[in-house]
Write a protein that binds this DNA or RNA. Structure first.
Lengths: 215, 215
DNA sequence: TCTAAAAATGAGTGATTACTCACTTCAATT
DNA sequence: AATTGAAGTGAGTAATCACTCATTTTTAGA
């Protein structure tokens, strides 16, 4: 929770927020993540934040605006760095093998994903019900990721390291496997004992077998 | 919707339910699926079912009992057939290749999955918040599926058709890919244009490359 | 056709909901 | 020290919530 707060401070200190405003955001994330958006009451969030309920509505016209104001900037500020930074880094570094590229991508951002899990959970919970979020998610993340991932894939295809399947399918299948692992691991069955390193390694191997070219 | 009702009648006709009880269940599924459990009101469900609100509470003590009574039997009666029937069928028929097995499994049950989508959506929405459902889901489905899938996998491994990765990992990765496709296709981005047959074929190919042994 | 149990009703319950607003406190500038 | 605008407050509001219960309607066996 302490690391997450640091993360949140970094995320929100551009606009100068008061202590109470930050507490509201932290409390809202915690509550939305635990109970879901609809089952969370503004009075509970206010209580948890140590703030009067009216204070919430001074800064956010509605409860939904509170939700959006949490999720939307995190989509641009948290997900975008994953896409842009890492993939630019990758494009700069030019890994020699796809395995290295996958391992770097997954491991590099796994801890961050774990720390941001409450927010990610909110995102996936609410996207099916909030059209605004769905559109934002699609425009900001899906399109961007796919465009960039496809470029990377084409690069490796040109080097003869990946099979000739259309890049968008390779992208979909690769992302499916990475997210599928994280989803099972941290959202569906977090109570099971997992050997993370081993499962990541197997996921990479599986992807590589699936789309890599044999020597 | 008509086919779904037939399906529901089959599912629930063991207990003799009145017309109104069936209408309540259908309306509850529709509402829960559209808005989520917490955002659905019993008055709305009653209205949609053409029934007095009191009638709901004659048959279900609480709103949560209504949810459980919908999801729980469907976990045993809908998911179990997929596992038991198809996999027994598979064990009886003994497909010669894993591809045929995968294709049969996916295509055979895809239409059913699509028709049951509202319920599946409810399941995945509420499992993170309802411990009862999560435990049931795990005991009834995950354990069962994995035990049976692992048997099938071992069979194919003995025949030299699958690589030597531990069966539970092959099971996890295979299921991840199938569910990952269905999740992207029908829950996250149903509004996109999809070439279903093509994507299924690619998913199968991907799985096969990932875990199949080369001739 | 009569009767008794089951099914269905809908007005009514207190609790909780998101949200408002008149008011107070705080912080910064002059 | 006075002023001012923003931040914060919390009692209050109408609406809605899940749920109850006395009553009526329907169903089914004798």
């Amino acid at each position: 929770m302490t690391e997450e707060e640091l993360m949140l401070q970094q995320l929100f200190d551009e606009d100068k927020l008061t202590d109470k405003q930050k507490k509201i955001i932290v409390a809202a994330i915690e509550t939305f993540s635990e109970k879901g958006y609809a089952a969370s009451s503004t009075s509970e969030i206010a209580k948890k934040a140590g703030v009067a309920e009216g204070t919430i509505f001074r800064h956010y016209k509605t409860k939904k605006e509170l939700l959006i104001s949490i999720v939307a900037p995190l989509m641009t500020k948290f997900i975008a760095p994953i896409v842009v930074k890492d993939f630019n880094k990758v494009l700069d570094r030019e890994f020699e093998t796809v395995e290295e590229f996958l391992r770097a991508t997954i491991e590099n951002r796994r801890d961050l994903l774990i720390r941001m899990l409450p927010v990610v959970k909110i995102m996936f919970q609410e996207i099916p019900f909030q059209p605004e979020l769905r559109e934002q998610f699609f425009d900001l993340i899906v399109k961007n990721i796919f465009i960039r991932v496809e470029k990377v894939i084409k690069g490796y295809q040109d080097k003869g390291l990946l099979i000739d399947m259309p890049p968008e399918s390779i992208a979909r299948l690769t992302i499916t496997n990475i997210l599928g692992f994280l989803f099972s691991r941290y959202i569906l069955f977090p109570h099971l004992e997992w050997d993370d390193e081993l499962e990541i390694e197997r996921t990479i191997q599986f992807i590589m077998h699936g789309v890599g070219k044999k020597d």
